[in-house]
């Protein structure tokens, strides 16, 4: 087993080209991959925010990547390859939905690979982004997303109007999207 089996750079393009990654000899490809796909699913879900799209995209990753895996290489390579494929699939998803080329979408928020799977990292990152916002922006996003308030409820809570909250929500999202965290 050599390191050549591992994708040198888990870029989306590599995944699209069908690089072969070897699997541990003692493991059956699908058995190992299905557990790894749990992580892929969580990663994709954390980027698209809904189950139906996350399932479709995870399925795409599985169908693209699994046939290219073989017995024999470290599990880390398998995971890296699956994540590379996931990034590629996510790129295609955002590109199709937003009508933009993938080159316009090289966005950390949309596709950046997590350091250690998903765990709480995604949540932590969101929390840190919110911390960077002004009080009003943070409040509107917390109430709307984390507490599930309707616009009307947010307006009542913030003693504002629905129209003003809607505008504030947009500005808060734009501001949050601009936050760059030091990793």
């Amino acid at each position: 087993m050599t390191s050549e089996a591992r994708p040198p750079d888990p870029a989306p393009e590599d995944a699209e080209q069908g690089q072969v990654v070897e699997m541990p000899a003692a493991s059956r490809v699908a058995d190992v991959a299905i557990d790894e796909l749990e992580m892929i699913y969580a990663f994709i879900y954390s980027r698209v925010g809904n189950r139906a799209d996350a399932e479709d995209l995870t399925q795409q990753v599985a169908m693209k990547a699994i046939p290219r895996l073989r017995q024999g290489a470290p599990a880390s390579a398998v995971r890296g390859y699956l994540f590379a494929t996931a990034r590629s699939v996510l790129g295609g998803f955002w590109s199709t939905r937003l009508g933009l080329s993938e080159s316009e979408l090289h966005d950390d928020l949309a596709m950046a690979m997590p350091q250690g799977g998903y765990s709480e990292e995604s949540d932590e990152r969101v929390r840190r982004i919110l911390e960077q916002l002004s009080d009003n922006y943070r409040r509107v996003l917390e109430l709307r997303f984390l507490h599930g308030y309707s616009l009307k409820e947010v307006a009542a809570e913030m003693r504002s109007t629905v129209g003003a909250v809607k505008v504030m929500q947009l500005r808060a999202l734009r501001a949050a999207a601009k936050v760059r965290l030091d990793e």
């Binding site: 980027r47 698209v48 925010g49 955002w94 928020l109 997303f145 734009r174």
Partner: peptide
């Protein structure tokens, strides 16, 4: 950018 961020917040 706002849409992508909204998806992340919804997931979080």
């Amino acid at each position: 950018e706002a849409i992508v961020l909204a998806a992340r917040l919804a997931a979080a």
